[in-house]
């Protein structure tokens, strides 16, 4: 339960609440950076031009959000956004495995984005009244953008789920593959209780419960089976990542590391 205190700026939050906030912002920023990077890999390759433009444009939205979270971290005394994004070793990232897995085929990228969008939508809604003012302001700013992301990924899931036998099969396989990693988004960290207790954000179990409910409803409506008794893939929130993240970082950091002092 929230203590009712409002932290209106970085200087107002100290002690364990500050550590909890930093932990949350790294998770949020790293998720957005990685999934944004993965989705940007579809630029020029998506099945149709319209999908290509929409997916690439939303990838930019995600990377933009990562930048916002990293700026909040910088205000809290963490390194500048470029340093945070481009210089850490894999184990220092806090993204869920869902965000860093290879883009695979269009079905997988679509399902992954849908799972991610539902989590993001639910999480943002639960952070709308965050006791950390910069965070609640950020939520208001991206609300409309996220509404569109949600419409877009819901549309793809239902169209492909109810498309042809082949598209339904590919979507079902993608659902089975992505689901354990999606549950991994809700891996609680040691700061979970402080985050919820100070009103900074929701506890992960609450986000998960509302995610599971919405996803089950939409998958069913899309003619897809909802996986049951799934063992979540945890580890991302404490720095244990799939190999794919290493490859992603190598590519993402390559240019930056050539000349870290170069202005862009």
């Amino acid at each position: 339960m929230s203590t009712g205190t409002t932290f209106s700026a970085a200087g107002d939050i100290q002690g364990e609440e500050r550590s909890a906030l930093i932990d949350l912002l790294y998770r949020l920023g790293d998720d957005d950076l990685m999934i944004g990077h993965r989705n940007s890999e579809w630029t020029g390759l998506a099945p149709i031009l319209e999908a290509d433009i929409a997916f690439s444009s939303m990838a930019q939205d995600e990377i933009g959000r990562a930048l916002s979270y990293y700026r909040m971290l910088h205000a809290l005394g963490e390194p500048d956004p470029d340093t945070i994004a481009f210089t850490r070793a894999a184990a220092a990232y806090r993204c869920a495995s869902l965000a860093s897995l290879d883009r695979s085929d269009w079905a997988f990228s679509t399902v992954r984005q849908y799972f991610y969008d539902v989590a993001t939508t639910r999480r943002l809604a639960l952070m709308a009244d965050s006791s950390y003012t910069p965070l609640s302001q950020f939520v208001r700013k991206v609300g409309g953008e996220q509404k569109y992301h949600m419409m877009h990924s819901r549309m793809w899931v239902v169209r492909l789920g109810k498309g042809t036998d082949e598209s339904r099969l590919l979507m079902q396989q993608a659902v089975e593959k992505a689901y354990p990693h999606a549950l991994g988004m809700f891996e609680a960290t040691e700061w979970d209780a402080v985050i919820a207790g100070s009103g900074i954000g929701p506890c992960e179990a609450d986000v998960e419960a509302s995610w599971v409910e919405e996803v089950a409803e939409h998958l069913s409506a899309s003619g897809l089976a909802v996986p049951t008794n799934v063992e979540p893939t945890y580890g991302g929130r404490c720095g244990r990542h799939p190999e794919e993240l290493g490859c992603l970082l190598e590519e993402m950091q390559k240019v930056y590391k050539l000349e870290p002092s170069a202005p862009w």
Partner: peptide, 20 residues
Amino acid sequence: SVHAPDPEAALILAKEQYGR
């Protein structure tokens, strides 16, 4: 113009194409 399977999808794809 956009290519789309139906009007609803057309609106969603047109938004990024022409509204962004």
